[in-house]
C-alpha cells in the first residue's frame, strides 16, 4: 500500500474535523432553540449548559482548523447553506420531546464515537482537545441516558420509534471513502467502519436489543464524502445557525 501524501492527509483531517465542528454548531443551536421545551427549571439549566459546551467545542475545532489552512473568520461568516458540512441527521427539526432526546442522543454519541478516533492523534494539542470534548460529552450522554431510563420505565414507545427512524441517517454519517487515509497513516486510532459498528451496537443496546433500528445506513442521494453529508442544509436551519452579526467575530 502506498503512503498517502501530506496534502491528502491534511485535507482528509480538515474535512473530518470541519464535519464534526459544523455538526456541533447545529447541535448547539438545537439545544438553544429547544431550551424552553425543557421539563423544569433545572432542565433548562442543563440544556443551556450543554449548548454552551457544544458551542465551545465548535469554536475550539474552528480554531484548530486554522492550523490546517482554514480561515477562522471565513468559517464563522459563511453566508451560504451549501458551505456547511453538518450531519443530515440534524436537518429535520424535532417533532416532539421523545424525538428531540432520540436525535440528540444519536448525534452526541455519533460525534463522540467519531471524535474518539483522534484520542491518540500524534498532534498532542488535537488529542488533548478531543479528550476535553469527551469529558464534556460524558454529561451530554448521561443527560440522554437519564431520559431514556424514564422512557423505558414509562413504556414510552414514541422514543423507540423516533430512534429507529433517525438511526439510518446517523449511521450514514460514518460513511468512509474506499480507503481510510487517516487510519492508514496512524492519525485515526481505528477504521471508521469499526467505529461505526461500535456506534450501531451501542445504540441497539440502548434499545434493549430491539431490531427496529437495525437497518442499513440511509442511502443519501448526492452524498459528498468531503462534506460528509448529502445535499445542502435546509434554508430554515441555515437561518437559525448563521452568524447574525458578522462584526462580532472574536478570537
Amino acid at each position: 500500500m502506498t503512503t498517502p501524501d501530506k496534502d491528502a492527509l491534511g485535507e482528509a483531517l480538515r474535512n473530518d474535523l470541519l464535519a464534526l465542528a459544523d455538526s456541533k454548531l447545529v447541535l448547539a443551536n438545537w439545544y438553544t432553540t429547544c431550551v424552553h421545551n425543557g421539563r423544569s427549571l433545572p432542565d433548562f439549566a442543563a440544556l443551556l449548559g450543554m449548548a454552551t459546551a457544544t458551542f465551545g467545542h465548535t469554536r475550539a475545532l474552528y480554531l484548530y482548523l486554522v492550523n490546517l489552512g482554514c480561515d477562522y473568520d471565513g468559517l464563522e461568516r459563511r453566508a451560504q447553506p451549501a458551505a456547511f458540512c453538518s450531519m443530515n441527521l440534524l436537518d429535520r427539526p424535532p417533532e416532539d420531546w421523545e424525538d428531540f432526546i432520540a436525535t440528540v442522543y444519536l448525534a452526541e454519541l455519533a460525534m463522540w464515537t467519531f471524535a474518539s478516533g483522534f484520542l491518540g492523534h500524534p498532534d498532542r494539542p488535537l488529542a488533548g482537545l478531543i479528550r476535553k470534548i469527551g469529558e464534556e460529552s460524558y454529561f451530554h450522554l448521561k443527560y440522554c441516558q437519564g431520559w431514556q431510563s424514564i422512557f423505558t420505565e414509562t413504556g414510552n414507545r414514541r422514543y423507540g420509534a423516533a430512534l429507529a427512524a433517525r438511526l439510518p441517517a446517523a449511521l450514514a454519517w460514518f460513511r468512509a471513502q474506499e480507503d481510510d487515509l487517516l487510519q492508514a497513516a496512524g492519525q485515526r486510532d481505528l477504521p471508521l467502519s469499526t467505529l461505526c459498528q461500535s456506534y450501531r451496537a451501542e445504540v441497539l443496546n440502548s434499545l434493549g436489543g430491539a431490531s427496529a433500528g437495525d437497518g442499513p445506513p440511509a442511502s443519501l442521494d448526492g452524498w459528498d464524502p468531503q462534506r460528509r453529508r448529502a445535499g445542502t442544509m435546509p434554508q430554515r436551519l441555515f437561518e437559525i445557525i448563521r452568524l447574525k452579526d458578522p462584526g462580532a467575530v472574536l478570537r
Binding site: P42, A45, A46, L48, G49, M50, F139, Y143, G146, S149
Partner: peptide, 19 residues
C-alpha cells in the same frame, strides 16, 4: 441541592447548575 427524576439527570443538572 437539585431536583431530578433520576440519578443520571441529577448528576447532569447538578453539574450545570453549580458550575
Amino acid at each position: 441541592s437539585i431536583e431530578a427524576p433520576n440519578d443520571d439527570l441529577a448528576q447532569v443538572r447538578a453539574w450545570y447548575v453549580y458550575d
